[in-house]
Design a protein around this nucleic acid. Sequence first.
DNA 1: CGCGATTACTGTAGCGGTACAGAAGATGCT
DNA 2: AGCATCTTCTGTACCGCTACAGTAATCGCG
Lengths: 375, 375
Amino acid sequence: MQSGNPLTGLPFFGTGGGEVVAKATLQTVADRVGVSRMTVSNAFSRPDQLSSALRRRILDAAADLGYVGPDPAARALARGATGAVGVMLTDSLRFAFTDEVATSFLAAIAEELAPTGLALTLLTTTTGQAGVVPARDVAMDGALVYSCEARSPAIDWLIRRRLPLVFVDQTPAAGIASVNVEDRSGARAAAQHLVDLGHRRVGILTAGADGPYGLVADPFASRAAYAPRQRMLGWHDALDRAGIRPNVVRQPPYSDRVGESARLLLDTAEPPTAVLCFSDAIAYGVVRTAEDLGLRVPADVSVVGFDDNPLAGRMRPALTTVRQDVAAKGRAAAAALTMAIERDRTGAPGRARHVRLPTELVLRDSTASPPARVR
Amino acid sequence: MQSGNPLTGLPFFGTGGGEVVAKATLQTVADRVGVSRMTVSNAFSRPDQLSSALRRRILDAAADLGYVGPDPAARALARGATGAVGVMLTDSLRFAFTDEVATSFLAAIAEELAPTGLALTLLTTTTGQAGVVPARDVAMDGALVYSCEARSPAIDWLIRRRLPLVFVDQTPAAGIASVNVEDRSGARAAAQHLVDLGHRRVGILTAGADGPYGLVADPFASRAAYAPRQRMLGWHDALDRAGIRPNVVRQPPYSDRVGESARLLLDTAEPPTAVLCFSDAIAYGVVRTAEDLGLRVPADVSVVGFDDNPLAGRMRPALTTVRQDVAAKGRAAAAALTMAIERDRTGAPGRARHVRLPTELVLRDSTASPPARVR
DNA sequence: CGCGATTACTGTAGCGGTACAGAAGATGCT
DNA sequence: AGCATCTTCTGTACCGCTACAGTAATCGCG
């Protein structure tokens, strides 16, 4: 006698007090009702293929037997589709969840994907104990690669599997759809803004998974990821033209210890009158450090961020930054992925598209002309 | 002649310039090498089952044929395990990514799960266009249910599927492992702290997916989720004992518009001298609103949060709050889930464990005795 | 009334693996 | 030499579902 789990409120097995069976499958239900297995499958997955009366009987029998519905794994094999897409993030997932820009991006993807019924599976580039490599071993219909090192083994697995892919904030590759933003021109505009204000001593605080860290001689020596490199190019576009040679400091990504890096720039004999930062989060740290050092922002030192993180508008002084529409990026990525999956499914034509979203310089209160004494 | 994709650097098919085949499977490789399919399977999944020489030949042939490795979907069916676990979040995934407490929790889970090789699949309670219900249709080995409404259809699907589950910040259910924090006693301590400081006029600003919203007459009328309810109980434990009847305002969860709700409490003829908030994020909004109204915190009004969000320490005044160890909660949840999956796999004994993590009142600068004039 | 079009259901042939129980030959030991 | 024991490799039987091509009965219609 099954009376149901008192707390979940659900019956232990089935909803009709049916017998306790090892495991109900389509066949179990088919046998019970006296129809073919295919008909039961249709009852669940293609209701228009049978009479509603029979469907009713089948569904009832299924409930009675505790049959929940087609097994997702078996269905995935038979259909060749899993209903989930992967999103590959840098090694430390922690970053992905700590950074407001990354989380907004993920949120936008999740929202765009929700109506399609596709679930999002988080993938890391790490390898598990038993040699499990999610990128190789998890079933999925396609994947997004977000801001990862260019050529990790994990990405190679995704490519080898011939999964429909979309690269986001990655160096675009032929045959793979990509979504990027105008990092370079955005950075150029930011640097030009400083030049126009009259700054001649400029510092750059960038970030990257690869070193070297600290004050770097050659800003382009690192095999940095796409965004850091593009932004560095953009900053230099404007600075070079103005004949300015910036001091460049690099730090690990998403470090909370911006202070140390910022001091490398600011706590010197001849500190820059303006600092270009890889992100708003870093810019925030620079502003705080400047204040700690007794420098006023923007009177003594101007600071420019990147991203237009919500933080940028909230902080005091409000941050001059380069806006990118992260939500739009997420939507574009999700759309590109569903499109790539669709194309893969139908074997349709069409080449991989490379989307490039605009950036825009947002002037706020953290930039001003350099102090008179150094002008 | 395959020369490889110039940009991905990977060959179009196989690594040995092998022929372009429709799709390589174990059988394809087996035929090529002249061994049984089972041996090829072993070469990939159980290397100790064959001589390394043969394995080498098999792997080479596989690479040549463009065979990547066992198909995850097929393997999932045959093995009965997918290598992914779900985590069910409230309808709007956006919240999950917007709230720093939620993201820290997710990050901790992800980190704890990484070494096991289990990927995290994000599930929503929403139903996709084609009637796709992730909780029912996505293959997974188990799932976490985090802070969802008690009995949504999506949760029912998970239960019906008999998936190993762990409830987090949910009302514990028999037979289902759960992880919770001492919401009630934490809230009680917070309220008691205000009582001890001499406050008699106390406001409460809580949040919940279910209304009613605004100033509520009966704080317990809402069928609120577990945490809101427990905290409400805790606050009342202390206030009731002191004979204090608080004004209670409820707002939707994670709304950015705390201002409106806060004004319902503060912008009145007889504003409370202290406000208890459901979260630090809300407390932040209350502090800002108080300042906008010309009230000083804590001189005119004390504010207490909940969670000990990093924000709490950063804000000025630093927020008095109730600390919960979100990372520990994430780790505990992940551990409970892997344990549940393991038990399910081995059919082992052992009852579902219910973990309850401590909370702790953290005194900072946002609370003080009420202003003299109202004392 | 006869015939093509629908509707309702069935059978077969996979999808691409893994588990498990051998079998055949090599090895070790007395 | 004789026999138990490894080591390697093989064969079979699923895992649970869906695609697709039927078949049989019902329907519409001139």
